[in-house]
Amino acid sequence: MYSNSPHGYGSTQNNYQQYQDTDLAIQTAAATPHQLVLMLFNGLMDELVRARSHIAAKRFEKKVTSINKCIDILNALTSALDYERGGDLSLQLAGLYDYCVYRLYDASDKLSVELLDEVAVILGNIRGGWEGMGTQHG
């Protein structure tokens, strides 16, 4: 009735995941482009923390999944840049996102939490800039 698991936890976990997915869909539908970028950054930063913990705990398959999610989010951020209106800033951000992607590949290959930390600092600074833009326009 609840799940195939002997403890019946599977259904509860699936329901919680469905709730989270629905909540995210509602937030996304109502978000401005600026808020969407911040949502991507928040997800990216959360996933970097997960990747770091997977490396530290030697959960290598989960590490690969987390690193790939980070790279997918960085690619989404790159594709969302407006090069016409953003000019040099958009080009600089694209370069930083590319650099972070390469560092993530290195971190994954070398199992390096230090490289993940470097990426987290760079992206944390960029996210801070986006957050600052939101307070100016809000």
Rank of each mutant, 00 (worst) to 15 (best):
M1R: 13
S3K: 11
H7W: 13
H7P: 00
G8D: 05
Y9D: 12
Y9L: 09
G10F: 07
G10L: 10
G10R: 15
T12Q: 11
T12H: 14
T12N: 11
Q13T: 13
N14H: 13
N14D: 08
N15L: 09
Q17C: 07
Y19S: 06
Q20R: 15
Q20Y: 09
D21Q: 14
T22R: 14
T22W: 11
D23S: 11
A25L: 15
A25D: 12
A25M: 10
I26Y: 09
I26H: 08
Q27W: 02
Q27G: 01
T28M: 09
T28E: 13
A29S: 15
A29V: 02
A29L: 08
A29Y: 07
A31W: 01
T32F: 01
P33K: 03
H34T: 00
L38R: 04
M39H: 11
F41S: 00
L44W: 13
D46A: 07
E47D: 04
L48E: 08
V49G: 01
R50A: 06
R50N: 08
A51M: 09
R52H: 10
R52I: 03
H54S: 09
K63V: 01
S66I: 07
I67F: 08
I67W: 12
I67M: 14
L74D: 01
N75H: 09
A76T: 14
L77K: 07
S79A: 04
A80C: 02
L81C: 02
Y83A: 01
Y83H: 11
E84D: 14
E84Y: 04
G86F: 02
G87N: 06
D88P: 01
L89I: 10
L91M: 10
L91P: 00
L91Q: 11
A94C: 06
G95R: 14
Y97I: 10
D98C: 09
D98E: 13
C100V: 05
Y102H: 10
R103I: 05
Y105A: 03
A107S: 10
D109S: 14
D109W: 11
S112K: 10
S112H: 13
V113F: 04
V113N: 05
L115I: 08
L115R: 13
D117S: 07
D117T: 12
V121L: 12
V121Y: 06
I122T: 12
L123S: 01
N125C: 03
N125S: 07
N125K: 15
I126N: 05
G128I: 00
G129Y: 08
E131C: 03
G132L: 05
T135S: 05
T135I: 02
Q136S: 01
H137Q: 15
G138S: 08
